[in-house]
Amino acid sequence: MKKSWIIALNTFHESLRKKTLYIVLVFGLVVIGASRLFSFLTAQEELKMIQDVSFSAIEFFGALIAIFGSLGAISSEIEKRTIYTLLSKPITRPHFVIGKFIGQKLILLINFVLLCLFFIGLLLFKKSMPNVEIFKALFLIYVELLLISSITLALATFTSDAFNIIFSFFLYIVGHLTSYGRQLLERTENIILKGLGDMLYTLVPNYENFAIRDKVVVGVPVSWQYVGKTTAYGIIYIVIAILIGIYFFQKREV
């Protein structure tokens, strides 16, 4: 575990210096900042607007950082051939994969925290104390981002970057639509279609589960139980993603 941590810190360290993700981060900050331009609204409406836009921006730009950050985590080590030296050290391949997972989570964490701080700063500036519901919504967004980054990283252990990016975004979109899909499927009588739909529903994580912002924005409280359940749901998928990553990387020739 210590060796994974050393690899994670190296990944994190490199990413901080590379600064490529900063562009996405800046975009996110700009969008959140822009949400306060709706000053023609009443103060109450404006606050709602700020929350709504900020949650969406944090989720969307966070997802971009999660996907683009994880995308090259493994392929860059292979392309630059740093992997040869690394694998000749006394580490196992699972150490490497887990190290990359943790490293990406650290990168995501720092970007996420910056976006959140900016958002909360904006609320405070508008003289609105963020309540615990807001933190619940942010927390679940973070769990969702962890999951998105884990899936991209798992894919990175056995596919090309091009395929990975397409598939990651595909999953991101489908993962937000599965509830609708399921409702549609409930109307069909076709058993095969229903079976396929159910399978897809289980395989593809339902990202909408993490989206409680609609409720938070209008002031409907969300139970801790729901937060806990959804976090567990996310962690199950994250663990599966890590195991898939380890499985494929162990067989991979670099």
């Binding site: 190296n10 051939r81 740093t82």
Partner: peptide
């Protein structure tokens, strides 16, 4: 592997590290 050192062909390392940082990273893995 604790007793082996390997220098790959046309070696290439982490762009954004300095020499001492690179050695430190590998050293910690040992």
């Amino acid at each position: 592997k604790k007793h082996v050192g390997f220098l790959p062909e046309n070696p290439y390392y982490y762009d954004y590290l300095t020499g001492p940082e690179l050695l430190k990273f590998y050293g910690r893995l040992f």
